[in-house]
Design a protein around this nucleic acid. Structure first.
Lengths: 336, 336
DNA sequence: TCCATTTATGAAAACGTTTTCATGAACTAA
DNA sequence: TTAGTTCATGAAAACGTTTTCATAAATGGA
C-alpha cells in the first residue's frame, strides 16, 4: 500500500490549524463557527479530500442518529423482493441513509445470523420480512422498542409496523376467477407452510372453493419451499395425477415460473389443457407463453412506504404501530 | 427502550470476574487461556447472550482482518447481477465474511457515492462492476493496492483482478447464428455506450456481419440505458422503420424483455416476422413466447470466483492480478 | 464602567473493541 | 538453588469520531 494511513480529522485539523473539535463541528454543520475558521476547515477538507470514517462515527453516535438501516429479505432471486429492495433503497438514499442488506434465502439460520449481524452493526432500524409469524428474536426486538417495520409478512404475538397486501382477498379473487372460467379441479402450489403469506393465500384458495360448493381435495394442495425448483417439481407431481387438475393457482413468482417450465416441457396448451394464475406479477408477464394472468403486488411501493414508516419510528420509537394495507390487483391475461 | 444500554465486553468481564482483555482473548480464540477462566468467560458470554459489536471491532482491527467486503452492482433488477450477488454472498457467508451491497442503478453519482460509503465503512475489499473502463476512483484504488476485483467489466488503464466472460465472441456467435438462419437485416440494441460490455458486444455484432459480407447499417444500431424501458422503446423505433430489421440482437436481459414486450404488443410472430436472440439467459427463457434463444452467462459462478479471488487478494495485496475468463454458451431455442 | 451573556474554540472523555506491554507465577534446565 | 523461559492475566493505549465541559474573548445592557 502506498498510503497506508487513513485520513482523519486530525489531519484536517492540523492542515487548517484548528482543533479536531472544530473540524467535527464544521462537518456536522454546527452553529457558531467564525467565517474564517469555517472556510479554512472547508478548504482543508476539500484539499485533502477527506471523508469522515463512518465506522468511528457510528461507534460514537447514539441510537437513531447513525444513518444506517438494515434490510432483511427472504429471497433476492424473487423479483418481487427486488422491487421492495429498490423501494426502500431509493427512499433511504434520498434521506441520506445507507442500507445494509441481507438475503437469507429462506434459511432460518441465515436469517438469525443476519439479524445478529445488523444489530451488531448498530443499525438505527430494520426492515424485515419475518420467516414466521412468531420469530422470537424479532418479536422481542419490537417488544424492546427497537425500530422495526415488517414487510410482506406480519408478526402474530405483537403489534408492529407493517406494510402488506391483502393476501387472503387477492388469492380468493384469483381462485374465484378460475372458478368463473369453469374450473373445478383447481390446485394450489404454495411456499413453505411456516411463511405467513403461504397460509393466507391458501385460506383464500380454500374459501373461494367452498363458497362455490367445490369440495376441497387435499391432494391438490402442494406446499414446497417458495422457489423455482419447487414449483417445477410440484407442478410435475400434479400433472402426473390420474385425475389431474385443470387449473393451477401458484403461490408466488418463482413457483409460477417453475410450474410454467414443467408445463412447457410437456408441451401442454395453456389454458386449454391447463390454466394457470400466479401470485405476483412480473414485468415480462406479457411476454410469457401465453401472457400470464397474475396477482400484482406493488413491491416498489411496499418498500418505499416501509422505509418511510421506519424513519418515522426511528424518530419516535414509542408511536403506536401502524399497519398499512396496500392494494393489489388481478391482471387477467391469457393463461386462465 | 427497556434495555437501553448495549452489552459490552465489560459486562462479560464483570460477570466472569476477569479483565476485558481476557474476554477479548477468548472471543478471538487466543492461546494460553487457563481452562477455568475459559469456561467462566464462555458461560458468561452465553448467559448474557453477548455478541461483540462489529462496529467497534472494525474500528480497532486493521486492514484485511475486518471480515467485511463491499459489493457494487449496476442493477439489482437485472437477474444476471442477482446471480452474481448470490455467488458472492454464498462464498462470503461460508468464509465468515459479511457483504455490504450497493446497487447504483447505472447512475454514476450513486456509484461514486457508494464507493465512498464502502471505503468509509472500512471494508477489506471490493467487488465491483465499473460503469466505465476508466473510472478514475476505482483505477486509483487498484493502483494503491486496495483489494478490488472487477466482475463483468474490466478496467482499461491498469491490470486488475477480473472475472468475465468473452463478450465479444459470444456476441459474434449469436449474430452469426442469426446470419446462418438467413437474416441480413439484423439490429443491435445495446446498453449505455460507456459500459465496456456494450462496446464488446457491439464489436462482436459488427465483425460477424462483416465476416459474412453484410454491410453495416448504422440505423440498425440502437444504444439505450440497459434497462427494460429502453429495450421497449428502442425496439419500437426499429419496428417502425420502413425497412425494418428481420432480426434483433439484444444486449442484455432487460433489454430483451423490453423488446419482447414491444413485439408482443404489436402481435408480431417470432421468429417468422421478427427473430430475436438475447444476451443473458434467464431461468424462465423456456417459458417465454416462444422459448428464447439466448447467450447464457454463468452469473453465479462469476460472483463465486470473484469472491474467491478477492479473499486471496486480501491475504496478499501484492500478488499479480489474474484475469479469469469463464465460458458462456449460446442456447438455441425457438426465437431465432 | 461593570457584570452578565453570548460566541468561538480547545481539551478531554467516551463509544466498544483489540493488542501491546508489563508482571507475577509456574515451570525448566543447569 | 538460580536464572532463564513460558504461561496466564491485567492495565492502558489505540482506532476515528462526537460531545461535554471549560475558558477566553467579544458583546450587551444598565
Amino acid at each position: 500500500m502506498k498510503k497506508t494511513k487513513i485520513l482523519s480529522v486530525h489531519d484536517v485539523a492540523f492542515k487548517a490549524g484548528v482543533s479536531i473539535s472544530t473540524v467535527s463541528r464544521v462537518i456536522n454543520g454546527a452553529k457558531n463557527i467564525s467565517p474564517e475558521t469555517l472556510s479554512k476547515v472547508q478548504s482543508a477538507i476539500k484539499d485533502l479530500n477527506f471523508k469522515p470514517n463512518r465506522v468511528a462515527q457510528r461507534l460514537r453516535l447514539k441510537k437513531g442518529q447513525r444513518k444506517l438501516i438494515g434490510l432483511l429479505v427472504p429471497d433476492i432471486q424473487n423479483p418481487f423482493y427486488v422491487d421492495v429492495v429498490k423501494g426502500v433503497e431509493d427512499l433511504a438514499y434520498a434521506q441520506g441513509y445507507a442500507v445494509f442488506m441481507g438475503n437469507f434465502g429462506q434459511a432460518v439460520d441465515k436469517e438469525d445470523l443476519y439479524l445478529d449481524l445488523m444489530l451488531s452493526e448498530s443499525v438505527d432500524g430494520l426492515i424485515v420480512a419475518p420467516s414466521t409469524e412468531k420469530h422470537s428474536k424479532i418479536v422481542s426486538l419490537v417488544k424492546n422498542q427497537f425500530p422495526i417495520v415488517c414487510v410482506d409478512r406480519g408478526l402474530a404475538e405483537i403489534e408492529s409496523d407493517l406494510v402488506i397486501v391483502n393476501n387472503y382477498q387477492l388469492a380468493f379473487d384469483a381462485v374465484e376467477h378460475l372458478i368463473n372460467r369453469g374450473h373445478k379441479q383447481i390446485a394450489y402450489i404454495g411456499g413453505l407452510s411456516s411463511i405467513p403469506t403461504t397460509a393466507r393465500r391458501k385460506q383464500g384458495y380454500l374459501d373461494a372453493l367452498t363458497k362455490h360448493g367445490i369440495e376441497i381435495n387435499e391432494s391438490l394442495i402442494k406446499l414446497g419451499d417458495s422457489k423455482h425448483e419447487s414449483g417445477r417439481i410440484l407442478a410435475a407431481e400434479l400433472l402426473n395425477m390420474k385425475n389431474r387438475p385443470t387449473a393451477l393457482f401458484t403461490g408466488n413468482n418463482l413457483i409460477t415460473l417453475g410450474a410454467l417450465e414443467t408445463i412447457h416441457s410437456r408441451e401442454l396448451k395453456i389454458p386449454k389443457e391447463i390454466a394457470i394464475v400466479g401470485f405476483d406479477d412480473m414485468p415480462w408477464s406479457i411476454s410469457l407463453h401465453p401472457p400470464l394472468t397474475a396477482v400484482s403486488q406493488p413491491g416498489y411501493e411496499i418498500g418505499n412506504r416501509a422505509a418511510e414508516m421506519l424513519f418515522h419510528r426511528i424518530k419516535d420509537p414509542m408511536r403506536i404501530p401502524v399497519k398499512l394495507v396496500l392494494s393489489g390487483e388481478l391482471k387477467i391475461r391469457k393463461s386462465s
